[in-house]
Design a protein around this nucleic acid. Structure first.
Lengths: 358, 358
DNA sequence: ATTAGCACTCGAACCTTGCGAGTGCTAAAA
DNA sequence: TTTTAGCACTCGCAAGGTTCGAGTGCTAAT
């Protein structure tokens, strides 16, 4: 158990870290010489060479070709990330500034998501992905029916957590807005705070228009439950194109396809994130064997939200050679920020700007 | 006036068209020889050569380098597009199929937009951009206030056209849901069908809670008016990367940045489209001198919607060397399809699948 | 155990060269 | 007058060759 840590000597760990660090900065293979020269380690290049050779045998480094330096393998990156403690935190002043921005748009979930995506893309210099908060077990908060034209109505469902779902429906005959409103009032009373299953049970208690509308409420609740997560907001897609590993158009395409293919993203979110606690930052390196499409990419992911209310995902996608320290910090910060926003928007009684409480 | 058409002889027009057509397919410079061989024109290569030389002088063609064939300039493309009548229409069977898909998700604007974007990206093999329908002069249809937690409320605005706007607001003290509902009912009665300006005028007629809520209704209406267009839906971004002209990562980046930069897109929409009638298809070649970021790109745009209800935009972005015929047809079709959906969703009394009426 | 020294490897960069597509010009043919 | 055949010329591109140097692995000395 403990011995696993000692597969590598302390010196090897240091060298591996240095090589990885240097490669992340330079995007080039790292030779023994640069390691010795850039970081004044008390060793000769020959010694470093031997150690690097060992690290290569152990699968932490590899050589793109014989006469080149070494670059980390996914395993090497994994080790590097594992040792990374805290690094590249966003300066406190910037944190405050960002926080302030969020509080200014506190009444619009969509805007949070956009802002978060934008800031994250900028901080990490990679592509960011944010999902809007979404409840797992949806409870109804309020339902409203609005007559639009003829026998057509608009149903608006407000879920606990503030999520909104709308739906246009055509009825068999037109009803007055008064009638629709009263049914809305009744169903809200009956269904308020209930989960989908309970609502569907209760649908049969009604008849006539009430039944018809109660039925589509249940139907829409089911859809809400089936929705894996909220809308996905992306930003900084062009950042990844700037990375040298995506100079080849084919590689770039493969990487960006991931961002367009929502099904893959949803799978990713549900498999890696949703079991974890909010606030934990996960790093997925090179697709981790499971996702072929992500061979050249790493993803830094975190879940945010408040238990019992709603959860969302915040993440960054970039090349495997990524500034993990900075990115992880940024994702962690953003996850916290968004959790705070979710919490605030549901529990706070008054608008208090953060600098007023501090 | 008429003479302008005769800047070119008929033969030159044909040759220009052939060269353009060939270049669009092959992505390579086109020489006099291929023109003669591929299309059995009754001329020798020397004659074609002379004509191509003239076309070059007139600015319709250009040579990437001395010993290469010719490629169309933006002016050449423009001529080509102008002469294009109807070409590459989507087969009727496919049209029906697509139409059917739309009618199946008739009750969700967001889904239309996604579907339209997806189909358009596939049809044009380029990037598609769709904005959800949005009214120009917003009228209020319904307003609802929902108590969420403590003194916090959720306001839901339904605009004529079905657009929904939500907003979380904290009041000075908590109110019962009954009280909120009755204010909602009152304000709906008072404001229904009115535009922003009239609503703001009437705000002062109220006092207490009614005043407070009426005020934020007005505020939110103003925001709705200020919103240039609905959400932008993108698809097929990776299609663009597959084009040889974007093999260079820098060029690709420049092109895709346009899609990320919403402000530019909005500008584009408002400047080129919003003055035009719905259904008209506009083609913007190589940024048309105005947009430097689009030097390598062409955009095919159309406005869709129903006067008095709502309008949106549908477009395709691809390389200047684009299959204009097919793309224009696809955009025209999609524009019509979406107009139909907007119309249907607001006027139709019953759900009728299109194949039932046909 | 570490290190200096050295031979070796191999990719990147640069040059040369030949090829061929495509042109423009001219003079002859229609 | 228009078209065309013929031909010299240009120039990008691909292929092959050479150099250069970074980086390695091994060995022998410390």
């Amino acid at each position: 158990m403990v011995k696993i840590m000692d597969e590598l000597t302390e010196r090897q760990k240091i060298i591996l870290t240095l090589v990885t660090h240097e490669h992340i900065n330079s995007a080039l293979p790292v030779g023994s010489k640069v390691v010795v020269e850039k970081f004044n380690i008390g060793l000769s290049s020959a010694t470093v060479r031997n150690e690097m050779s060992t690290l290569t045998e152990l699968g932490y480094l590899r050589q793109p070709h014989t006469s080149a330096g070494r670059i980390p393998t996914d395993k090497g990156y994994r080790f590097f990330v594992g040792r990374l403690v805290r690094e590249g935190e966003i300066p406190l002043s910037a944190q405050r500034k960002i926080s302030h921005q969020f509080y200014q748009m506190r009444n619009d979930v969509e805007q949070w998501a956009r802002l978060a995506a934008s800031i994250l893309a900028q901080q990490s210099n990679a592509a960011s992905l944010i999902t809007a908060p979404h409840s797992e077990h949806t409870k109804l908060q309020h339902v409203e029916f609005i007559s639009t034209y003829g026998s057509q109505i608009l149903m608006v469902l407000v879920l606990v957590g503030g999520e909104l779902r709308q739906r246009i429906q055509n009825l068999n005959e037109p009803y007055s807005q008064e009638r629709l409103s009263s049914v809305g009032h009744l169903l809200t009373q009956q269904f308020k705070g209930l989960e989908t299953a309970r609502i569907i049970q209760k649908v049969r208690e009604f008849s006539d228009l009430e039944l018809e509308l109660a039925y589509i409420v249940g139907e829409e609740m089911e859809r809400a439950d089936a929705t894996v997560s909220g809308e996905i907001y992306l930003d900084g897609i062009t950042n990844v194109l700037a990375e040298p590993e995506f100079n080849d158009a084919g590689d770039a395409r493969r990487a960006l396809r991931v961002l367009e293919e929502r099904t893959l993203l949803y799978e990713l979110f549900s498999k890696t994130i949703m079991n974890n606690d909010e606030g934990t930052v996960q790093v997925l390196i090179g697709g981790e064997g499971t996702w072929d499409e992500l061979k050249q990419c790493s993803i830094v992911l975190s879940k945010y939200g408040v238990p019992g209310i709603a959860f969302g995902t915040v993440g960054v996608l970039g090349p495997v050679r990524m500034a993990y320290g900075k990115t992880i910090s940024a994702v962690r910060f953003m996850s916290g920020m968004l959790s705070e926003m979710v919490s605030q928007s549901h529990f706070e009684e008054n608008i208090i700007a953060p600098n007023e409480v501090d």
